[in-house]
Design a protein around this nucleic acid. Structure first.
Lengths: 341, 341
DNA sequence: CGAGCGCTTTAAAGCGCTTTAAGACGTGGC
DNA sequence: GCCACGTCTTAAAGCGCTTTAAAGCGCTCG
């Protein structure tokens, strides 16, 4: 009985087919196709020709299996975070430059970090880049004993993993100083919760205020990473009838929530109240949110993360490394001098 | 000379090690570990034990290579799009249910769709799900001759690929009808550019207006997919000093830009002007943008997309399929009766 | 003129897993 | 006691590619 499904689904050409077509061995073909040194120019040409003629594409799984090294870096991200999206783009570019490829694994509602990591472990990754992971430090450490791990954007007081992050406290301090420089004294902070990142930022606020002699003005409102927490803070301030002249928030999302409530209540920004966020996420850049914010320098962060990976993998570094990048204040339209001058 | 790098990096245990530890053949071990029928319960237990003891994890590359089928679905997305992020989450879930796994490949500034697709082709994917691809129809067709391709969210007048998308025209029509129902007559549309999706939505607007006897009020402002185009449209309307009572935009981003300019100019929304977007992206749901918008029903879309894949792969379907899902208007805070109403 | 020497090419041995066909081992029937 | 038969187990042949050690091939040189 003949196959009934129409024309045979053309089997993908294999290296062997290319070699046969070119009249050489698979070894030569492999060498040529990877641009490895050895084969003479005549062979080169014939193989390349044959490959083109057949429309050959190497099978990654096979090549991965045979190769000594995979040159693969696994990246765990939260697909919903615009900030992570940005980081992934940059990591892609940086990895490319070093001849590494990426395997993405995303955290979703039904797929936790552990599972995302496992997928990567099973995929022959040589190293892991974890974007703002929430795994406990011990787990990170354990992973690091298996393969180089670089954590981006979160401090990890651990013996093993590399960390690349921004100086959170300094970022908030810059924001506060910027505002103080404009003449603000009543500068309120909207907190980001119990995480280690939030603690860093809150500490930066408190120290900066003290340093500037504004200890009297310290005000920290509770909050978290979402828009709603900023909105709540704004409503609280409005209800108290006692608006500060400036507010610094844990992140851009919170700032956007805050902004929105203020604008809808007819509060002029930055005329009456100045607002500063954190992250410089695409959200902040939306033409008309135009938020003054603290940039995490994502391209710098990712460049360093990939560099850390490469140093471990190709450079033989084995001691731990923590790189703290100075943040950069991005002044946009939500900050200005306080009302009373 | 002895290895100087400290203790041997413990080689990952292989199937063979597990088999040896359990005192069985690799064949049995493989069978057990995949839950395949055959091995008796005694063997089962010993293998499972051994695997646990050694901390065995199967190597995906090897298993992929040896397996007849990869059970892998390749997904091309734009990592920056919050809408795609959402879709990926849902595809993940749906694929899981059918026993398929995902390989993500993202489009970035320096990595176009073609390259993203190629990576997937080389990864033994059995089918491709393309989120809002911009590849020309011929290329999609060519791909479809290699493996099942499902395009999500964009009409493709082509012979091969499956398409799962929302009825764009109907979505906009719903928006217009909603507004007309509230008493609006001057309903302006902000366009989304030259794409085939934009054409569908624009057509929906025009037909709905005519159907409602509002042909006189037809007004289409040029625009594209970004915030700035909405902002431009708003400025144009303000400058003309002739605001409509309602505006429908190509997508949520455009609506957000528009909203922002209106709010900052002191125009009350929805008091003076109602605004409707399209996509129901996370952006629209931001607590305080609270945009009335047209939902693309992403979970339905992805469920159908995965179903289409499975039907082709496991069900032997070979004829083309286009599924058009009815959109759903999500009424939020940016629409209300017109001022004079 | 044969040894010796680069340069190219290739045979063959994997990479770690799956799968299939054949083997081993009881069981029960005749 | 022998054979047919089902159940479990395994040897062995790949999957498609990389890599290494060795072979092949002109050459030059002594």
């Amino acid at each position: 009985m003949v196959d009934v499904d129409g024309p045979d689904p053309v089997r993908r050409p294999r290296l062997q087919d290319v070699a046969a077509e070119a009249g050489v061995s698979t070894a030569s073909a492999s060498l040529v196709l990877r641009g490895a040194p050895g084969p003479g120019s005549a062979t080169r040409e014939r193989v390349l020709d044959a490959a083109a003629r057949l429309g050959y594409r190497p099978d990654r799984a096979a090549s991965l299996l045979a190769r000594r090294r995979s040159r693969l870096i696994g990246v765990v991200m939260d697909v919903r975070s615009t900030f992570h999206a940005q980081l992934v783009e940059d990591v892609h570019e940086a990895a490319d430059e070093h001849g590494y490829d990426l395997v993405l694994s995303t955290v979703t509602r039904t797929r936790d970090e552990e599972r995302a990591v496992e997928t990567l472990l099973d995929s022959r990754c040589e190293a892991l880049v974890l974007l703002g992971p929430e795994l406990p430090a011990e787990r990170l450490d354990a992973l690091d004993r298996q393969l180089p791990v670089v954590v981006v954007g979160r401090p990890v007081p651990s013996a093993g993993v590399d960390v690349v992050r921004v100086a959170d406290d300094e970022g908030v301090a810059q924001a506060v100083e910027h505002l103080a420089g404009l003449g603000h004294r009543r500068i309120t902070y909207v907190d980001g919760g119990r995480g280690v990142i939030a603690a860093g930022r809150r500490g930066g606020y408190e120290r900066a205020m003290r340093r500037l002699g504004l200890a009297q003005q310290l005000q920290v409102l509770p909050g978290d990473a979402g828009e709603e927490s900023g909105a709540r803070a704004a409503r609280a301030l409005l209800a108290a009838g006692d608006l500060p002249t400036a507010v610094v928030t844990y992140n851009d999302h919170s700032a956007v929530g805050l902004l929105d409530v203020l604008l809808r209540s007819g509060v002029d920004v930055p005329g009456a109240v100045s607002v500063v966020g954190f992250d410089d996420s695409p959200l902040a850049r939306l033409a008309h949110i135009d938020l003054t914010t603290v940039s995490q320098e994502s391209d710098e962060l990712t460049r360093l993360a990939v560099q850390a990976v490469v140093e471990r993998l190709d450079g033989g570094r084995s001691e731990r490394r923590e790189v703290v990048v100075p943040p950069r204040l991005v002044v946009r339209g939500t900050t200005g001098p306080p009302a009373g001058g």
